[in-house]
Write a protein that binds this DNA or RNA. Structure first.
Lengths: 200, 200
DNA sequence: GCGTTTATCTTGACGGCGTCAAGATGTCCA
DNA sequence: TGGACATCTTGACGCCGTCAAGATAAACGC
């Protein structure tokens, strides 16, 4: 059950492929990602991954699924260290959102609609939905009404989500130069001030 | 100078490649895009594009550059049909932003930081910057102060930009289900209400 | 008008890619 | 102990981007 890298059977190839896959993803970008590259890094034949993930989309989907879970975790980590005020909790989620995007930009891109995953498996959709429900919960705490019962509150959710997502995407893409020049604390303060505009 | 498709020399291959390139981009997605596919569609040899665009990145960069110009035009079209109130003009830009993203999602993705373009040429950066300056101008009209002279106003720009961009990205990626189910007028009203939260 | 330079496009080759089929090598359980 | 099964390898296929060499047409100097 433990990993052995010198035998015919790898031992824990699936986990090794996921780990190496994420490295390759961040190093080469989504476009540069290749199954054979990942296989080579793990020291295994070029078509070994097929047995565990079917095809390239399978591995990418697994990476994205795991990504969404850690994405949700990143938001919760920030909330653990924040105040208990509902607005503080939303701001904390936003910062976690940003943390994740900046720490794993290629994975972030992959998760949000890169067309290399044509048919997202159910577990990926569920993991993504869980992250969305988390944000919806943040807004519900502030407004006192479930977004799923009030379209105005749902609009609040979409506004906060869009803002955080757009900020993260633009930052990653390098198109938001004025903010990119800031150091981390300044950037976070800037982001808080922006997100704060929505919950005034 | 006119296009001839039956001779050795194409006549206007560069334009034909751009046009076919965009078709392929939207049909196959950024990931499915290939130079050879584009060449085949135009009816030309597989390495003819190289002479006009250098390599695949060159063609993609040219598409993205043209995309940014039409992106800016889409915002101006909406403004032409909107009221003269500064806030109306910003909302119109936002709707144009959305128009473009929905009409050409793959191109939109390509423009905003897809990693298939590793070294954006100057004209691409300039076209992108022109679009940004347009948004900055919209905010300046509302606040009466240049964003480049006041960080608070710059934050307004970034907020509006992030919101519009995130909304567009999430919509394209299919992750914003509640909004996706709406028809066009409902979606636009929803988007106006969201963007309106920022300029209350 | 003619020859030559230049721009444009084709052909063929190379290695890398994803995927499939067939075979090799371990593991596990009856 | 032996056969079924999971796991991994090998080899092949066509597609890809890129490069070098060659073919063709246009442009230009004279």
């Amino acid at each position: 059950m433990t990993a052995r890298h010198d035998t015919y059977h790898h031992g824990d190839l699936r986990a090794a492929l996921l780990s190496a896959g994420e490295e390759v993803l961040e190093e080469l970008g989504v476009a540069g990602f290749s199954l054979r590259h990942v296989a080579r890094r793990v020291g295994v034949s070029h078509s070994a991954p097929a047995h565990h993930f079917g095809d390239a989309q399978g591995l990418l989907a697994a990476l994205a699924t795991d990504g969404f879970r850690r994405f949700l975790a990143a938001m919760r980590v920030r909330q653990r260290d924040s105040g208990d005020d509902p607005k503080d909790l939303l701001l904390a989620s936003g910062l976690g959102y940003l943390d994740f995007a900046l720490a794993a930009p290629a994975l972030f891109r992959l998760m949000f609609g890169d067309d290399r995953i044509k048919h997202p498996p159910p577990e990926l959709l569920e993991a993504a939905d869980a992250a969305f429900r988390h944000l919806a919960g943040d807004i519900e705490r502030i407004r006192g009404v479930s977004p799923f019962e009030d379209l105005e509150v749902m609009a609040d959710v979409m506004a906060a989500w869009s803002l955080a997502h757009g900020f993260a995407e633009l930052l990653i893409s390098g198109r938001m130069k004025p903010v990119q020049a800031m150091d981390r604390p300044a950037r976070e303060a800037f982001f808080r001030s922006i997100l704060g505009r929505l919950i005034a």
